[in-house]
């Protein structure tokens, strides 16, 4: 049950690559928990990690073939109000490590750099993957010291804010806090 839900979360143009990539990124993030302000993943995070790793084969096997045609992050997929909400959530939950410019330069100078969450480098690293995959990854791994501690709506608001900083246009409808529907929206660096 849980596996097929995650399957949909992770589905996109290339489900296998996507799932493995999420896993690789979890590992990568864990490898980055370094030095001065390194965080201690909680017991919850650990069990999520184990869950994510064991889930991979079923997720690949159970992919849903009936996905709708993918849209793009350039299609006005969030609203300005949602991005504004996301900005506030970001400041409290993400900004300390990822920086107020979302460029991976932490607000606290004692902390090491982190991956950027907007603009060219972010888009390059996530090119071709879906917002569903991004939500799944973020929920599994972030905030680093307490993964999964935001609500889905808050995670999605933050994603809307990240897209707005990357200069994607806002539209009339909000990004849904529904991983299945987000799986239909593909991240593309260029329109």
């Amino acid at each position: 049950m849980e596996a097929s839900r995650t399957t949909r979360i992770l589905m996109g143009s290339s489900v296998r690559a996507c799932v493995l990539d999420v896993r690789a990124r979890v590992l990568d993030v864990r490898a980055r928990l370094v030095t001065v302000h390194a965080r201690r993943p909680t017991v919850l995070a650990r069990s999520i990690f184990v869950f994510a790793c064991t889930l991979v084969p079923c997720a690949v096997a159970a992919q849903d073939e009936s996905a709708a045609a993918p849209g793009s992050v350039w299609d006005g997929v969030f609203t300005e109000a949602q991005a504004a909400r996301g900005r506030l959530t970001y400041a409290g939950a993400c900004g300390l490590c990822h920086g107020r410019r979302l460029n991976g330069a932490p607000d606290d100078p004692d902390m090491v750099s982190t991956p950027p969450l907007a603009r060219a480098r972010f888009l390059r690293e996530w090119e071709g993957r879906s917002l569903g995959a991004l939500l799944a990854y973020t929920r599994l791994t972030m905030p680093e010291d307490n993964p999964g501690s935001l609500t889905d709506a808050e995670y999605v608001d933050v994603i809307a804010y990240m897209l707005s900083v990357s200069r994607m246009p806002a539209g009339d409808g909000e990004l849904p806090a529904d991983a299945r529907r987000l799986a239909d929206i593909v991240i593309q660096g260029e329109q």
Binding site: A31, R32, L33, V34, T35, R46, S113
Partner: peptide, 17 residues
């Protein structure tokens, strides 16, 4: 890239778990 912190076997990062 700053030299990363302390690690121990089986640990994904440090200080951690």
């Amino acid at each position: 890239v700053r030299p990363p912190g302390n690690r121990y076997p089986g640990d994904g990062a440090s200080p951690g778990r």
